[in-house]
C-alpha cells in the first residue's frame, strides 16, 4: 500500500507540469498585449509604441517564451503568481483569501451533499420500488431541475425579505452560510443521490450479499459490506465534486455577494488581468489533480484489487 501511495503521488507531478504549461501557453495565445492592459489600467492617457516597449521590458515580456514559463513556474511553486495588472498588488493576496472563502462554502456544501445523498441513497436502495424510494426520487428530480439562480432568489425573497430570518448576503456570521449552502446542496444532492442509490442497488443483487444472507448474517452487517463496496464509485464522485463545485459557485457567490473566487475571476476576466486568471486556472486545475489522486488513494485502501495495478 505504501508503495502504491508513493507511485500514485509521483504520477501526479508530470500531470501538474503539463497543466501549468497549458495554462501559461493559453494566456499567451490571447491577441491582447499585456503591456497595453497594464498601461490602460494605470490610466496612461497616451499609449505610445515606446511606452509599450518599455513596459514589456519591465514585465520581462521581451525574453523568450520558455524562459518566461520556467520563471513563472518557479515562482508559482513559492505561491508567487506575480502582481495583478490592475491593482498592482501580489496575486496571492487577492486569490488566497478568495480561495479560502470559496473553499469554506464548498466544503460545507460538499459535507451537506454527502450526508444527504449517502443517507437517502442507501435508504432508497434498500427500499427499492416502494413509496419512499419513488417519492424521494420524484422530489430530487424536481429540485435538481430548478435553476440555482432562481432558487437562490426565491429563498432570499422568502427567508430573508419576507420572514427576515436569515441575512441576504455576505459571510459575516454562520447564518450567512445557510442559504448558499442550501442552494448548492439542493442543486447537486439530487445528482449524487442517484449515483449512490444505483451503486448500492448493483451491490444488492451481487452473489456475495445472497451468500451472506444465506449464512445468516444480520442485515446491518450486510449493508455495511455493500456500503464498503459501493463507496468506491461514491468516493471518486465526491472527490471530484469538490473541484467541480469550487469552479461553479460563481452564480451562487454573485447572488449572495460571497467574497470568493467567483467575484474575483469575473472581475479579472473583464479587466484582462492575466496573472490573476492564470493563477485561478492553475489553482483550479491543480485541485482537480489533487482530488483525483486523493480519490484513487482512498479507493485503493477500500479495494484490494486496485493496489495491484501498479
Amino acid at each position: 500500500m505504501n508503495g502504491y501511495i508513493i507511485k500514485r503521488t509521483l504520477l501526479a507531478a508530470p500531470l501538474l507540469i503539463i497543466i501549468s504549461f497549458l495554462t501559461f501557453a493559453l494566456n499567451h495565445l490571447s491577441p491582447l498585449n499585456p503591456a497595453e492592459v497594464v498601461l490602460r489600467a494605470q490610466g496612461v492617457p497616451q499609449i505610445t509604441q515606446a511606452l509599450i516597449a518599455e513596459t514589456e521590458a519591465a514585465l520581462g515580456m521581451d525574453r523568450p517564451f520558455l524562459i518566461r514559463y520556467a520563471d513563472w513556474l518557479a515562482s508559482c511553486l513559492r505561491l508567487d503568481f506575480g502582481d495583478s495588472y490592475i491593482t498592482g498588488t501580489p496575486v496571492w493576496s487577492l486569490l488566497g483569501p478568495a480561495l479560502l472563502n470559496t473553499l469554506k462554502l464548498t466544503m460545507v456544501s460538499v459535507i451537506a451533499i454527502l450526508a444527504l445523498s449517502v443517507g437517502l441513497g442507501i435508504l432508497c436502495a434498500l427500499k427499492e420500488g416502494r413509496l419512499l424510494d419513488r417519492s424521494v426520487r420524484g422530489v430530487s428530480f424536481f429540485l435538481t431541475s430548478m435553476p440555482s439562480a432562481w432558487l437562490a432568489a426565491m429563498m432570499i425573497w422568502y427567508f430573508s425579505v419576507k420572514l427576515d430570518w436569515l441575512p441576504t448576503s455576505g459571510m459575516d456570521s454562520s447564518a450567512g452560510y445557510i442559504l448558499p449552502v442550501t442552494v448548492l446542496t439542493v442543486s447537486y444532492a439530487g445528482i449524487y443521490f442517484r449515483i449512490i442509490r444505483s451503486s448500492m442497488l448493483s451491490q444488492l443483487y451481487e452473489d456475495y450479499t445472497l451468500y451472506a444472507r444465506a449464512c445468516g448474517l444480520p442485515e446491518r452487517k450486510i449493508t455495511l459490506r455493500m456500503l464498503k463496496n459501493s463507496m468506491q464509485v461514491a468516493v471518486s464522485v465526491f472527490c471530484m465534486a469538490v473541484p467541480v463545485i469550487l469552479g461553479s459557485t460563481v452564480v451562487v457567490e454573485s447572488i449572495f455577494a460571497w467574497p470568493g473566487l467567483g467575484a474575483l475571476t469575473v472581475n479579472s476576466i473583464l479587466g484582462r488581468d492575466f496573472p490573476v486568471i492564470q493563477a485561478y486556472v492553475l489553482v483550479l486545475a491543480a485541485s482537480f489533480v489533487v482530488f483525483n489522486t486523493l480519490s484513487d488513494l482512498i479507493n485503493a485502501a477500500l479495494n484490494p484489487r486496485l493496489r495491484k495495478e501498479f
Binding site: 459490506r225 464498503k228 463496496n229 477500500l302 479495494n303 484490494p304
Partner: peptide
C-alpha cells in the same frame, strides 16, 4: 460461483 460469493473487499 465461488469467485463472486465472497465480499470482494474483505
Amino acid at each position: 460461483n465461488g469467485m463472486r460469493a465472497f465480499d470482494p473487499s474483505s
